[in-house]
Measured scan of single mutants.
Amino acid sequence: ETIMEVNLLKGPKGLGFSIAGGIGNQHIPGDNSIYITKIIEGGAAQKDGRLQIGDRLLAVNNTNLQDVRHEEAVASLKNTSDMVYLKVAKP
């Protein structure tokens, strides 16, 4: 597993990826991690090219996303300014 830091500039459609996982909404049984499950065509993440489906999202800005509820992860992604710092684990 490789840890990678990505600074992503939000586009008109936001960050351009979808997530799944978290406490109460496990993407993988027994694993509370938050995973990237979709990269949106023409979105910021696709244009940047570094994020991939299956990457594990560890942090957004200063918010640690390990062992959080799905709703908390979504809220932390929404409550960001235009430049967003992401910390991901690549499988």
Score class of each variant (00 low, 15 high):
Val88Trp: 04
Lys87Val: 10
Asp48Gly: 04
Met4Asp: 06
Val88Glu: 01
Arg56Met: 13
Ser81Leu: 14
Tyr85Pro: 12
Val74Leu: 12
Glu1Lys: 14
Gly42Gln: 13
Gly43Asn: 03
Val74Met: 04
Ile36Met: 02
Ser18Lys: 06
Lys38Val: 09
Leu9Phe: 05
Tyr85Met: 13
Ala45Phe: 01
Leu9Lys: 10
Leu86Arg: 00
Val6Cys: 04
Asn62Val: 08
Leu51Pro: 02
Gly54Asp: 04
Leu77His: 01
Lys38Asn: 13
Val84Ala: 12
Glu41Leu: 06
Leu9Pro: 11
Asn32Ser: 13
Asn61Val: 02
Asn61Tyr: 03
Pro91Ala: 06
Pro91Asp: 08
Ala44Glu: 14
Asp67Thr: 15
Leu77Asp: 01
Ala89Phe: 15
Asp82Leu: 10
Ala75Glu: 15
Lys90Asp: 03
Gln26Arg: 09
Gly16Val: 00
Ala89His: 03
Val68Tyr: 06
Leu77Pro: 00
Glu72Trp: 09
Gln66Met: 15
Leu8Thr: 02
Gly43Arg: 06
Asn25Met: 12
Ile34Met: 12
Gly30Met: 11
Gly16Leu: 01
Lys38Leu: 08
Ile19Cys: 12
Asn25Gln: 08
Arg69Cys: 11
Glu1Arg: 05
Asn62Lys: 14
Gln46Glu: 13
Gln46His: 07
Gln52Asp: 10
Ile53Leu: 08
Val60Glu: 00
Leu65Gln: 03
Gly22Ile: 01
Gly22Val: 02
Arg69Asp: 06
Glu71Ala: 12
Leu51Thr: 02
Ser33Phe: 08
Asp67Cys: 07
Gln46Thr: 07
Met4Trp: 05
Leu57Phe: 02
Ser81Ala: 14
Gly14Lys: 03
Ile19Met: 07
Gly42Arg: 08
Met4Glu: 06
Asn62Arg: 10
Gly21Arg: 03
Thr80Gly: 10
Ser81Met: 11
Tyr85Lys: 07
Met83Cys: 15
Ile34Cys: 07
Ile53Ser: 11
Ile19Arg: 00
Arg56Tyr: 02
Pro29Met: 15
Asn64Val: 08
Ser81Thr: 13
Thr37Asp: 09
Asp55Cys: 12
Lys87Gly: 05
Ser33Trp: 06
Ser81Phe: 12
Ile34Asn: 01
Val60Phe: 04
Asp82Ala: 15
Pro12Lys: 09
Gly42Leu: 08
Thr80Pro: 13
Val60Gln: 01
Pro29Tyr: 13
Arg69Asn: 14
Ala75Tyr: 06
Asp48Lys: 02
Lys10Pro: 06
Glu5Trp: 04
Pro91Gly: 10
Asn79Glu: 11
Val68Ala: 09
Ser76Cys: 15
Asn32Val: 06
Glu72Cys: 09
Phe17Cys: 03
Val74Gly: 06
Asn79Trp: 09
Gly30Asp: 06
Gly22Trp: 01
Leu57Cys: 03
Ala44Pro: 13
Ala75Met: 10
Asn61Lys: 03
Gly14Cys: 08
Ile39Cys: 05
Asp31Gln: 06
Leu77Gln: 01
Glu5Lys: 15
Gly30Ile: 03
Ala89Trp: 14
Gln26Gly: 09
Gly43Phe: 04
Ile53Lys: 11
Met4Tyr: 06
Asn61Met: 13
Val68His: 07
Leu15Ser: 02
Lys78Pro: 02
His27Lys: 14
Leu15Gly: 02
Asn62Pro: 00
Gln26Ser: 13
Lys47Asn: 15
Gly49Leu: 06
Lys87His: 02
Ala45Asn: 01
Leu86Ala: 02
Val6Leu: 11
Asn61Cys: 14
Gly16Met: 01
Lys10Met: 07
Leu77Ser: 01
His27Gly: 05
His70Lys: 07
Pro29Trp: 10
Ala73Leu: 03
Thr80Ala: 15
Val74Ser: 09
Asn79Ile: 15
Val68Asp: 02
Lys90Cys: 08
Thr63Lys: 10
Gly30Ala: 08
Gly11Cys: 13
Thr37Ile: 12
Ile39Pro: 01
Lys47Trp: 07
Ile23Val: 14
Asp48Gln: 04
Gln66His: 04
Pro12Met: 06
Ile34Ser: 02
Gly14Gln: 03
Gln66Pro: 02
Leu58Val: 14
Gly24Met: 10
His70Phe: 06
Asn32Met: 05
Ser33Lys: 04
Val88His: 02
Lys78Ala: 07
Leu58Ile: 14
Lys13Arg: 09
Lys10Asp: 08
Ile39Gly: 00
Glu5Pro: 04
Phe17Gln: 00
